[in-house]
């Protein structure tokens, strides 16, 4: 059988894809919380910074962002006298994380704003500061609300990692393209690759489901 010979190289690609997904999803989550809370901040500077970040990265295309970071940023670095050349892996993780983080920020903001007003009043009556209220009262309650959209974003992010093959990172999409060049057996290769992405997406969605159950533990307690 021909197709068994493709398994090894493709699995190597899968591993890179998984690594990219994990790193960029973590980076994206951090950015999402930072910018989502930043957009709710009363500090005009933090707020403006967060809004700008969110709008720019949601308003442009991921591939444009990736190419900009990969091709344009080093040139900008030259102009201002900094070395802004990064390893393609860093550029990939950065672009994916920045992109998904901007979408995640809106999820965080929305979920935090959906926390009932009465919870904020209770927090005020106990004299929590605004920051404490956000991080200790609102955010933990908003977290379970955020998980389903976060799950979708994580899968979106997994799919988006395919684009880093275009800056020659050896992920699954890149390996597929290599094999196709070598063998011209596109039907087999791309069918296998589609199913591999599908499998990884299912596993990721299941993991996010577990995480959702975990952060929402307090919701399921009943008398």
């Amino acid at each position: 059988m021909e197709w068994t010979r493709y398994i090894d190289p493709l699995l190597q690609g899968c591993w890179v894809t998984i690594e990219l997904t994990v790193y960029s999803t973590i980076l994206g989550a951090l950015l999402a919380f930072g910018a989502g809370m930043g957009k709710l901040s009363h500090n005009p500077l933090i707020k403006a910074l967060s809004v700008t970040y969110i709008e720019v990265f949601r308003g442009t295309s991921l591939l444009v962002q990736l190419f900009w970071l990969y091709f344009a940023l080093p040139l900008l670095g030259e102009l201002i006298g900094l070395d802004l050349r990064f390893h393609p892996v860093s550029v990939g993780v950065l672009a994916l994380g920045l992109n998904i983080g901007a979408y995640g920020a809106e999820v965080v903001r929305g979920a935090v704003q959906a926390v009932p007003r009465t919870q904020y009043e209770a927090a005020k009556a106990l004299n929590f500061t605004r920051t404490q209220t956000l991080w200790r009262i609102a955010l933990p309650q908003a977290l379970p609300e955020m998980m389903p959209p976060f799950g979708n974003l994580a899968v979106q992010n997994l799919k988006d990692t395919a684009l880093v093959s275009l800056i020659s990172l050896g992920d699954l999409a890149f390996r597929a393209e290599q094999l196709r060049n070598l063998t011209q057996d596109s039907t087999t290769i791309y069918t296998m690759v589609l199913f591999m992405y599908f499998g990884m997406a299912l596993v990721l969605a299941a993991l996010m489901g577990l995480l959702e159950r975990h952060v929402g533990r307090w919701r399921h307690r009943r008398r």
């Binding site: 999409a173 596109s186 299912l202």
Partner: peptide, 18 residues
């Protein structure tokens, strides 16, 4: 579900080469 969970890039390559 399958279409939703697989990358546009690969779907594009699939159509383009297959």
């Amino acid at each position: 579900e399958f279409l939703r969970d697989t990358p546009l890039l690969i779907q594009l390559f699939f159509l383009y080469y297959v």
